[in-house]
Simulated scan of single mutants.
Amino acid sequence: MADILARLDALSRHIETPCGEGRMVWRLWGEAGREAGPATPLVLLHGGSGSWRHWTRNIEALSRDRLLICPDLPGLGDSDMPPPADSPAPVAAILRAGLEQILGGRGYGPWRYDLCGFSFGALLAGHLAAQAGEELRSVTLVGAGALGLARQITPLVKVRSETGEARIAAHRHNLASLMFADPANIDPLALAIQEANTVAARFRSRGFASTTSLKDAIARARAPVALLYGERDAIAWPEVESRFAALRAVQPEAWTGIIPGAGHWAAYEAAESFNAMLGDMLARRLGTLHR
């Protein structure tokens, strides 16, 4: 399983931008896209306690005809901690500055990109959308919290003090409780990703999930907005439609979708369906966005 992650990493280009007193690490796959149309660069923001590895089963498909950009968010993966803040907004500002450094000086004319964020990455995507100008073409939120709605309690177990088989069992329990709809879909690669992400995670983001932070931020977005959930996403089920309604209260034209048979980590558990649904949203965003 480590070979799969190492191969993807080796295929990427690494770029560093400032983050707090250190640096933020970005990985890029594919080629720079045209300035308009479906090949506009796509930026993927991973979930809390995660890294670029959350997109392992999406990278090759989504980078075939576009530049794909996957950062390790501040304080996660290979990226250093951001300055202390009581809101996601300053962290989003770090992302925006990094994107301007990466895309703004490439000599392709006005820089544009599509944005997709998962879980905590969706929260940061909302705050980034609130700050962005015309460079942001669309924003897709996946498995989003912080819409002002209560969620079921998800029982997780502590992993850091465990070793050996007990540590693997703890990872499997947490993935089954929060990330997957069907525990049978938890394969060795998912466990390897969970282990790598857990070891590197320093930034704690769970406190934002029960707030209205995303709803308040995405209300200020000027780009078209979409919201996707796995059918059995632990943070939304059984009230997915109420979350769509919360988004439409501030973004009436938002496009929404449900990925059948998937849990919170839909981009992994139902990768083909996720890739197709995201591609459909991106292909149609220049025309009428249907619900």
Rank of each mutant, 00 (worst) to 15 (best):
A209K: 03
I69E: 00
G230V: 08
I258K: 02
N185M: 14
A144I: 11
N197G: 10
A236Q: 08
A122T: 13
P260K: 03
P71M: 05
A201E: 13
A266D: 11
L282G: 04
L141G: 04
L67V: 04
A6L: 09
A200L: 15
L95R: 07
A146T: 08
L175R: 04
M24Y: 00
G121I: 07
S49E: 14
T56F: 08
R27V: 03
T40G: 07
M179L: 15
L28F: 02
L278K: 01
P224I: 07
I69D: 01
V142I: 15
Y108I: 01
W111D: 02
L156C: 08
L11R: 14
A192P: 06
A170K: 04
W55T: 02
G287W: 06
M24A: 02
M1K: 10
I186E: 02
V250D: 03
G279L: 15
A132W: 01
I59G: 10
A266M: 14
V250E: 04
G107Y: 00
C19L: 00
M24I: 00
W29A: 03
G98D: 01
G263A: 12
L228W: 10
E165R: 10
V159C: 10
L136V: 03
E239C: 06
A283D: 15
L11Q: 14
A226F: 04
G37H: 09
A236V: 12
A146C: 12
G47N: 13
D233V: 14
L147F: 09
P90N: 06
E231L: 11
A190E: 10
P183I: 08
Y268I: 05
E195R: 09
A181P: 15
W111R: 01
A184M: 11
Q194P: 01
A245E: 11
R291P: 00
P38Q: 13
P83H: 06
R13F: 05
W265Q: 14
R53A: 12
G279W: 14
L68P: 11
R167Q: 14
F120K: 02
E241A: 05
P183G: 09
R23K: 04
L191N: 05
R220N: 11
G133I: 03
G261Q: 15
L45T: 11
G230S: 12
A169T: 10
H127F: 08
E100G: 07
L28T: 05
S213D: 10
G107A: 00
L42A: 11
H54T: 14
R284L: 12
R57I: 06
L28Y: 02
R66F: 09
R220M: 09
R160P: 12
